[in-house]
């Protein structure tokens, strides 16, 4: 036996502070909490606490003048909120704008991802321009739209007039302006267009990621099997995109339904409450009018529905067969 000729390696246990710290960090229990800690703290401080506070506010009679949570009023705030016509208009508009935006987004994002799969001249420039709406701050984007849809100086109107579609004796009426933001349905349509414009980059990136993960051979096989463009789109591409389309719907709809910047800058809910949406109405009630309790009730109103919808959507996305 010559194993005795190999000297066993002595492991000196280092005793320095850094060495001990290093050993502590080697233990999974310590490392896990160190790594997760910041995220957990962040969620508790900026998501959990405001959420609990909103629930507490919605069940209390707190106002800006007296923000203490000293009186429990049950569901009185919710009842008061539901008695106001503006609330129901805002609820309808929120759902309508979100649904219409999602519908348009799905079509446009699928079309854009089909385009971006192929390489063409100027694709990089196109990609940069395409992502810009997402990179722009909401307020800046909204101001740009405010100018585009201005009642006097709208370039959109100008183009329509030049094309002979707008103005005296034209299909769109005798006036030279459409007053997009001053009419109820045009105002809502304007909000939908602005939301779609802003969300399209995000939706497209999600859909494009799914599109690129489909093996190219599957499309070639479908072509050889005799499928044309639309059959491939509807029978091959979209079924494979389905889980990620659900994710795209979920993300963009939550962003749209919770967003008030566009409304605040473009229409302020006007005319009347015709373009009112829930988040802006909650802000007007809770902050501007000082009724924190009612504001919280408006803001929380959709929460249970959105939660259920989100859970169902994610389950549907996970359950779909391998894409």
């Amino acid at each position: 036996m010559n194993s005795s000729t190999i000297a066993p390696v002595e492991h000196a246990r280092e005793e320095g502070l850094l060495a001990r710290l290093g050993r502590a960090l080697d233990r999974p229990q310590v490392l896990v909490w160190l790594m997760l800690g910041p995220a957990v703290l962040y969620i508790i401080a900026f998501v959990g606490f405001p959420f609990i506070l909103a629930i507490a506010l919605s069940l209390s009679d707190a106002t800006i003048g007296d923000p203490s949570l000293d009186r429990y009023v049950g569901l009185a705030n919710f009842a008061a909120v539901m008695r106001q016509d503006a609330f129901w208009i805002a609820l309808r508009n929120s759902l309508l704008i979100t649904a219409a935006s999602i519908g348009l987004l799905l079509v446009l994002a699928t079309a854009a991802s089909e385009l971006l799969v192929y390489s063409f001249r100027g694709k990089r420039l196109f990609q940069v321009l395409f992502i810009l709406p997402w990179a722009m701050p909401v307020s800046l984007a909204a101001i740009a739209w405010l100018w585009l849809l201005d009642s006097q100086f709208s370039p959109v109107d100008w183009v329509l007039v030049q094309l002979g579609l707008l103005g005296p004796g034209s299909p769109l009426g005798p006036f030279s302006h459409l007053y997009y933001l001053g009419r109820p349905w045009l105002g809502i349509a304007s909000l939908v267009v602005a939301d779609v414009w802003r969300m399209l980059p995000l939706a497209t990136i999600i859909v494009l990621a799914a599109r690129l993960s489909i093996p190219e051979e599957r499309f070639q096989q479908a072509r050889i099997d005799g499928a044309g463009f639309f059959r491939i789109l509807f029978r091959i591409t979209i079924p494979a995109l389905r889980p990620m389309l659900i994710v795209a719907i979920l993300f963009t709809s939550l962003l749209i339904i919770g967003e008030m910047g566009m409304v605040e800058i473009l229409t302020r809910g006007a005319p009347g409450h015709a373009t009112q949406v829930l988040p802006y109405w909650a802000y007007l009630k809770g902050i501007q009018s000082g009724s924190l309790g009612q504001g919280a009730a408006i803001a929380l109103f959709l929460f249970p529905f959105l939660l259920v919808a989100a859970v169902l959507a994610l389950r549907a996305a996970y359950r779909s067969p391998e894409a």
Binding site: E217, I236, A240, S320
Partner: peptide
């Protein structure tokens, strides 16, 4: 890869 359609 056989390129079967996985969702069918």
């Amino acid at each position: 890869s056989f390129a079967l359609y996985p969702h069918m």
